[in-house]
Amino acid sequence: MTNAAFPQLRIVPVRMLKPETAERLLNMLADVAGIRRMMIHGPGLPKVVPYGPARGSPNPHSDRKAIRVADAEIALRVQVGMVILEVEDASVIEEVRSLCDGFFVEFPYLLQEGRFMKTAPTLVDYAKYGPDADTSLIGLTDPRNGESPVVIRTKQ
C-alpha cells in the first residue's frame, strides 16, 4: 500500500516491450539500490480466449512467457506497457532516469513522477487478504487473481 513518504515514478516507453527487452530493463532496475516495490503494467495476455465464438480454447502467445529478474522468475501475463516503481528517496529517481536514458535508444520513453499505486485497500483486497494484510503487498497484484507478488533479492 502506498506510503506518502516514498516517491513513486513510472517508466513509460512509447512502444510496448517484448519480454526480452523487459527482462533487460528489469534486471537493470534490480541492480539499483533503493527500489522498494515495482509493478509491471500492461494489457493482459490470457491463457485461454476469454470471449467470442472461440471462447475457452487455448491462446498461444509468444509474449506470454517467464522472464528471469535477478534471482527470481516472473511469469509474464501482460505485455509490458510500463513499469511503476516506489523508491526510497528522490536521489533514486535520478539514478533510474540516467539508466533509462542509456537504455531506451531505439525509441523514446517518459519518466513520470506521481502517485501510481493504491493508497488504501479496496473492498476486494479486504475480502481477499483480511483486515491484517501486509500493507506492502496490497496494490501490487490483482486481488482477483491467485498470483502473489514476486520477491526479488539482490546482492546489496
Binding site: 512502444r15 510496448m16 494489457p43 495476455l45 467470442g52 465464438p53 491462446n59 502467445h61 505485455q79
Partner: peptide
C-alpha cells in the same frame, strides 16, 4: 479480428505491430 479486438488505441509493440491479445 472477429472478437477480442482490443488494441487500436494502444501503443504499438517494439516491432511495430498493433497489440493483439490473441496474436
Amino acid at each position: 479480428r472477429g472478437a477480442t479486438v482490443h488494441g487500436h488505441s494502444l501503443r504499438l509493440a517494439e516491432d511495430g505491430m498493433m497489440f493483439d491479445m490473441l496474436q
